[in-house]
Design a protein around this nucleic acid. Sequence first.
DNA 1: GTTTGTGAACCGATTCACAGCA
DNA 2: TGCTGTGAATCGGTTCACAAAC
Lengths: 214, 214
Amino acid sequence: MTERSLPPPTLERLPVYVRVLDELARRGETTASSTRVAELAGVAPAQVRKDLSRLGTYGTRGVGYDVRGLAEHVRRALHLSDAHRVVVVGAGHLGQAVARYAGLRARGFEVVALTDVDPAVVGTVVGGVRVAHEDDLGEVVRSTGATTAVLAVPPAAAQVSLDALAAAGVRSVLSFVPGRLAVPDGVALRVVDVAAELQILSFYAAAQARPSTP
Amino acid sequence: MTERSLPPPTLERLPVYVRVLDELARRGETTASSTRVAELAGVAPAQVRKDLSRLGTYGTRGVGYDVRGLAEHVRRALHLSDAHRVVVVGAGHLGQAVARYAGLRARGFEVVALTDVDPAVVGTVVGGVRVAHEDDLGEVVRSTGATTAVLAVPPAAAQVSLDALAAAGVRSVLSFVPGRLAVPDGVALRVVDVAAELQILSFYAAAQARPSTP
DNA sequence: GTTTGTGAACCGATTCACAGCA
DNA sequence: TGCTGTGAATCGGTTCACAAAC
């Protein structure tokens, strides 16, 4: 049985652990200590142990963790045991980039649909997927069984698209649209704001430029 | 004089306030209370006041904040007063999408250069910018005066590109490449991992599917 | 009366440090 | 001996609540 709730910071580290454990497995390492995982993940060893202990007791004292077994346990905690089907809403440059991004499949996500409102794009094939009209979003979601969406539409269209996704039964939405959206019930939304990230970096870069007070 | 350091959570909210204040200014609102800003930003009013008070005393008791003035103060705190020049490293689908993303310029970032290693892409023009060869990165950064970079290369190439950016004098790097990178001195790095975001959403969506314990 | 600015209380995550076990 | 799992201590951010200012 996986946990019903986890502290957000812990949850955000779990994908990192999955990646690190897969990497260790790929290198043929069969066992790993919290210290080893910690250095590859860039966190403290105690943090790794605390995080993992919330999922269950999967380590062996004096030995460490079984790499493959732990990877599977963490994946299960994230409900990643089977691949998620993803619909990309908005087939502009960003939407197309996401649809063609090979790194998704390797980590459990398959883009099964792509929609847009522009008749010039509808019907073309991107990354092996035929672009459907956004008016058909509900049907597309139903026929493909998509449970997850990537939102890559203009800001003015974002709320309508999000509501349509929710109505179609999509439960997870990753939005690249800046701005506040009303989140429909039953939907989990995360927002990636590229400009905001650059603005945050602007501060850190300036802070670093002056190592200490003169 | 702006602050030398800010709590990371505060720093990550400042771009949100900038966006909200610009939006209020666009609507013609000249004054805003912390409550007003808070509801548009999706945080608590006390949080807004605490965050803003770290930058200085810019509000008027009984009245609120001057929208335009505050926006400029927050921008200054983030060192956004003048536009940053951005080099995009990697002209694959994602790099091209970023280079063409109009939302960047509106928020203080101008893409001035784009590089790639593929001879088929080098020389083409994307979003008004000619693609240069990545071997010329140093020269490109120097001639354009870029201080900020977006990293959109394959994982295997990321460390080399990051080191080259650092050597060229770039201070801020936003990476879309999953995986741990050694961060050169004097560089601020933030990573956006799209697959990890979807994995986190996978958990929240599953948690929401079961509203409460039976 | 209204709203800011902020010390104090609170809350939750990180880190410590060690008991427990292979 | 070596490393996990975890209570206890610590740290830092959020929220509260109110005095100060308009």
